[in-house]
Amino acid sequence: MIQILTTYGGLLLTAMGQTLLLALCGLFFACILGLIFGLLSVVKNRACNIISIIFVDAIRGVPMIVLAYFIYFGIPYLLNTIMGFGGVTLSALQAGTICLALNCGAYMAEIIRAGIESVDKGQMEAARSLGLPYWRAMFRVVLPQAIRTMIPSIINQFIITLKDTSILSVIGFPELVNTAKNVVANSFMSFQVWAIVAVMYLIVITILSVLAKQMERRLNRGRE
């Protein structure tokens, strides 16, 4: 165990850094996508609602590993070979970010929709009766309340997405699982390596959970 840590510790830590980088990139765009599609699903416009439903259902209906293969191999093949653009390449980080953003974005959209719908309709009505335009009422009055109820689900989704980065080892992104596989191949010490990897994930996610709890408590101040 000590031997693994001294020999490969630095390598695994770097890989953890890559995992976090990928998760961060993915989550950033997932939040944007989630907010856009979440809002599209609550506005009073049938076309917008349908666009949101199609996005969420399409992404939820495809396993992430298929999505990863599709984006990393399928899209460049479509553009270069079938449509003849040529020279389009996606790095593993880019493909991984897109994949996580789409996948997590779809779930975030659902969380945001549910959060907005959980806010009493009277809030929107009160804001509108004061002459606030719809979007201003949404961002100043409804969303701040919705976010409080959404925080636990969002944190949960963040943790799932952080763990889902491991799936992107299949497109060769040098994140923790991918690197660990190589370390096992070199050292033949499966038990030790995977135990270390598991503990590394556990530590990072525990830290995230604790931070999340603190943030939740802060946001819940001033609420009955």
Binding site: E125, A126, S129, P144, G222
Partner: peptide, 11 residues
């Protein structure tokens, strides 16, 4: 407009 349930903004 003044509502039955006040509808003050809690935040």
């Amino acid at each position: 407009l003044v509502f039955q349930n006040f509808n003050l903004f809690p935040q």
